[in-house]
Nucleic acid binder design. Structure first.
Length: 640
RNA sequence: GCCGACGUAGCUCAAUCGGCAGAGCACCCGCCUUGUAAGCGGGCGGUUACGAGUUCGAUUCUCGUCGUCGGCUCCA
């Protein structure tokens, strides 16, 4: 599988939800125009809102404050985004957090000056005069004049009018809308959040600007709620939960992006693999295994080296031959497919492997378990004929849906990633006809299957279009969890073929798929999704037996032993702590079941059950509990 | 990789202006024998990420390296 495409451009979506349970499809909208087909109506809704005007206006006030400090600074763009706004400047020096405080203070003074926002529609010539010493604004005006590019450099449908907005001493090229007067921006309802570098027009080759982020709300209470929400989100961040629940660690000496799985994490992985193997066996997959190191030749043939050498660990050379650590499994699977003659009767061939791959992600791109340098993919490649394509492709989509139902994942968006004409021959295999054909095939398959999706231009894999499943981390970052990709290019490079019913050679299509993502990203996601409260089947420790006094230690241990003999992960807490402390510890480790045994239970040969949700039930037979637990585990139930 | 911030015990954090590095939890030992989210006492634990520099003296100031975090970029 090429990749469970990594952390999606948080740049692309501006209106993602902070928390998935707050997800509001109506607010899901594209920022850059890359994804224009995505919920355009929703964008209009946000743009029409009062909050949008407040944030947009706050950005102008911030620009005024910044330019007072740096009269030679060059303003660029400053739009509202989810929860706030930013403004990018080209300044004589880099900003620090101290500057932030000074700017914020000055902003408070400005808004209390009660200045009106005045709009004036002007011609391109007038605009060029007004912004004569502002190169970025001039570039924007050019774009507007040429009938239109928006501030991100994306084409507009119709030629826009050019307007300026003025408040107090500040004038900006702007289409609005704004609030009437700065007094509508409450001095206690906004806050500057951070300073960051950002490239002009989002292009690394351009100059890096200074970006200031702020958040703004209608009133103080809303701001406080938002800040509180941010704190709450941190609590379910997988990096915190992973540490608290002893799932994984990173060690400086091992290296960035290279997680060490602790025993509890090992259990999660085992359970996920068990699940995948069961499902894939039912769906007709064959399991294969391939090496982690491969000769350079293989990646030259696959086309990965010319396109992606930058993301691969550099080669090691032995006896004059270069070897690479594999960044993906597909070339090896292609080799396995090609290892013998195939008949159309053999198709589809489905080769699965939880392969370990390594990718050299740039240091600044790493993000807990979600973006790592070593990963194990729920990988498989399906080789099929064109006629089989739709059924196979939808079979994978059905598999996703089964998994998502099992995990109770409801907030996600399926995204069809397409090529761009401009990228042909560079990012994408240069075969425009095949691109259009396969994109149509995917679209038709999704439409026929009644699966909703959005389209994204210029996001495809180099060898074909793909469907990614987009989800959000606790702190609101978007990334692709699962992926389902069409490959119309690589089978040919590998000379893959099968004999069709006419007796002629035909090149198969290949579907790369990773419905369970990578172990790293999946566990990271599930930690946040469940806030650490895993269903019983996934819980590293399913039952903790708690003795009230040491009189019951043997009884407690015998219960734990019996549970383990029944395939239930159980331990007994025989420490000298009081029962209350033992319960607290088990609760904090989010153990789903606590069995409490004291004098009464021991005498009656029974147990008391405390469930993670706080409910309890006394005078229970152990056998009865075992039936309940085994039922939850075998059905992978969400119930406790 | 780029911009900004941060790095003190296993964890969460403190240490005034540059003046003997501290607390809670965890861990170990003991006491208590306990009824549904922390019983009590004692002990162990540190080259303040690493390396230079300034200084009589550096956790504190400066520089470099490594790592983490918030963004940008990237993302097979």
């Amino acid at each position: 599988m090429e990749q469970p495409s990594h952390q999606g451009a948080s740049e692309v979506w501006i209106c993602f939800p902070l928390r998935r349970d707050n997800f509001n499809e109506a607010e899901y909208k594209p920022k850059s125009g890359k994804d224009l087909k995505m919920a355009q109506q929703a964008q209009e809704k946000y743009q029409d809102s009062y909050l949008y005007k407040i944030r947009h206006s706050a950005a102008h006030v911030m620009a005024q404050a910044v330019l007072e400090i740096f009269p030679d600074g060059k303003p660029t763009i400053g739009p509202p985004v989810e929860n706030g706004f930013y403004y990018d400047f080209d300044l004589p020096r880099n900003l620090t957090t101290e500057d932030l405080q000074a700017i914020e203070k000055r902003m408070r003074q400005i808004v209390q000056g009660k200045h009106d926002f005045k709009k004036t529609v002007i011609s391109a010539e007038e605009a060029k005069k007004i912004f004569a010493d502002q190169p970025y604004k001039l570039e924007l005006i050019e774009g507007l004049e040429q009938g239109g590019f928006d501030e991100y450099g994306n084409p507009l449908d119709e030629k826009p009018e050019i307007s300026i907005y003025q408040q107090d001493t500040f004038t900006d090229l702007c289409r609005g809308p704004h609030v009437e007067n700065t007094k509508e921006i409450k001095p206690d309802a906004f806050k500057l959040m951070s300073v960051a570098g950002a490239y002009w027009r989002g292009d690394e080759k351009n100059k890096q600007l200074q970006r200031l982020y702020g958040t703004a709300w209608e009133n103080k209470k809303q701001l406080e709620e938002y800040l509180h929400q941010l704190e709450e989100a941190k609590k379910r961040d997988h990096r915190k939960l992973g540490k608290d629940l002893e799932i994984f660690i990173f060690d400086e000496e091992v290296g960035p992006g290279l997680p060490l799985w602790l025993p509890n994490g090992g259990i999660l992985i085992e359970e996920l693999e068990k699940l995948a193997k069961e499902m894939e066996e039912k769906a007709g997959y064959d399991r294969v295994r391939t090496p982690n190191v491969t000769k350079e030749d293989l990646f030259i043939r696959s086309g990965h080296l010319p396109y992606y050498a930058e993301s691969m660990y550099p080669p090691m050379e032995l006896e004059g031959v270069k070897y690479y650590i594999k960044p993906m499994n597909c070339p090896m699977h292609h080799k396995i497919f090609g290892s013998k003659g195939r008949s159309y009767r053999d198709l589809p061939v489905r080769l699965a492997e939880y392969g370990t791959c390594y990718r050299y992600e740039k240091s600044g791109e790493l993000f807990g378990l979600m973006r790592v340098r070593s990963m194990q993919m729920n990988d498989a490649h399906i080789y099929c004929s064109e006629e089989q394509f739709e059924q196979e492709f939808m079979g994978v989509v059905e598999l996703y849906k089964k998994y998502f139902e099992l995990f109770g994942i409801e907030k996600y968006v399926m995204r069809l990633s397409l090529h761009s004409k401009a990228g042909l021959g560079k990012k994408y295999v240069n075969n425009p006809e095949l691109w259009i054909k396969t994109e149509d095939m995917v679209r038709r398959a999704m439409d026929n299957g009644g699966v909703p999706y959005v389209e994204a231009d210029d996001e495809a894999a180099f060898y074909g279009p793909k469907i990614d499943v987009q989800i959000w981390s606790a702190i609101g970052r978007e990334f692709s969890l699962a992926t389902n990709q069409v490959d119309f290019a690589v089978p040919e490079r590998f000379d893959l073929k099968f004999t069709n019913s006419e007796g002629h050679d035909e090149v198969p299509l290949c579907i790369h798929r990773a419905p369970l993502s990578t172990h790293e990203r999946m566990v990271g996601f599930l930690l946040e999704h469940y806030a650490g409260n895993f269903p019983v089947w996934l819980s590293p420790e399913q039952v903790r037996v708690i003795s009230i006094t040491d009189e019951q230690n043997d009884y407690a241990e015998s219960i734990a032993k019996e549970l383990r003999e029944n395939g239930i992960r159980a331990s007994a807490d025989l420490s000298s702590q009081r029962m209350n402390a033992k319960i607290r510890n088990a609760q904090m480790m989010k153990v789903p079941y606590m069995i409490v045994v004291g004098k009464n239970e021991m005498e009656a040969g029974q147990i008391s059950l405390r469930v993670r949700d706080g409910s309890q039930q006394n005078g229970f037979a152990l056998s009865e509990f075992i039936v309940r637990a085994k039922d939850r585990i075998s059905r992978r139930s969400a119930d406790l």
